[in-house]
């Protein structure tokens, strides 16, 4: 980042190539599939802020921490806007919309394992979207971006105990969600993600 601040365009390309995937997924997961276009807009806004603040960047923390902190702040603002408009995703609403998602036929015995795995992958992503925003953010920062719990604390500006609790609750929610979906498939009928 310091190199880019001094005018090295290649340094920015390297940074962008390294962080664009995890950050994009983090932003998209945080806003959910319903707001995919908004997530892309927010992702671009994060990088524009990085570019605009290139000369003010100081080596006080890792670049990735700084990057995700910008993203975190923008997401918090966006959540507030959505909450004010009453459009924010709620667990109840999402549970009601589950039927609109991908449906798989349970009687397709061939390719059962592959399909089952694909189903579980889609199911876990859907379960992540159903998490409470703070728990989802902690989970994504820990397991999507690969931050240590201490770094997550810095990004979300929360105490370590709070982050640990959010992570623990997030895992618990995901487990319950997955077991519920997996149990539904084993009972037969249509698989609904």
């Amino acid at each position: 980042m310091l190199d880019y601040g001094k005018g090295n365009q290649a340094a920015f390309r390297a940074l962008y190539a390294r962080h664009k995937g995890p950050l994009y997924r983090y932003v998209c997961r945080q806003l959910g599939t319903k707001y995919h276009s908004k997530a892309q807009e927010l992702f671009q806004e994060v990088w524009l802020r990085v570019i605009d603040n290139r000369t003010r960047y100081k080596v006080e923390a890792k670049f990735s921490t700084w990057l995700y902190r910008i993203a975190h702040n923008l997401l918090v603002d966006e959540h507030r806007k959505l909450t004010a408009r009453g459009e924010h995703l709620s667990l109840v609403d999402d549970e009601q919309h589950e039927g609109n998602y991908l449906t798989l036929a349970s009687n397709q015995t061939h390719q059962e394992n592959t399909l089952h795995n694909d189903y579980l992958q889609k199911a876990i992503k859907h379960c992540v979207e159903l998490l409470v925003p703070q728990q989802r953010e902690a989970f994504l920062l820990r397991h999507e971006a690969g931050f240590e719990p201490a770094q997550v604390c810095n990004i979300v500006e929360a105490k370590p105990e709070t982050v640990k609790t959010r992570l623990r609750y997030a895992m618990s929610q995901l487990r319950e969600c997955l077991e519920r979906k997996a149990g539904a498939t084993e009972l037969g009928g249509e698989r609904q993600v």
């Binding site: 995937g21 997924r25 992702f43 999507e144």
Partner: peptide
Amino acid sequence: IIKLYQQGNDELPP
């Protein structure tokens, strides 16, 4: 759960 989440998690910006 973590492994399941990270499998096929390769979405990239357009």
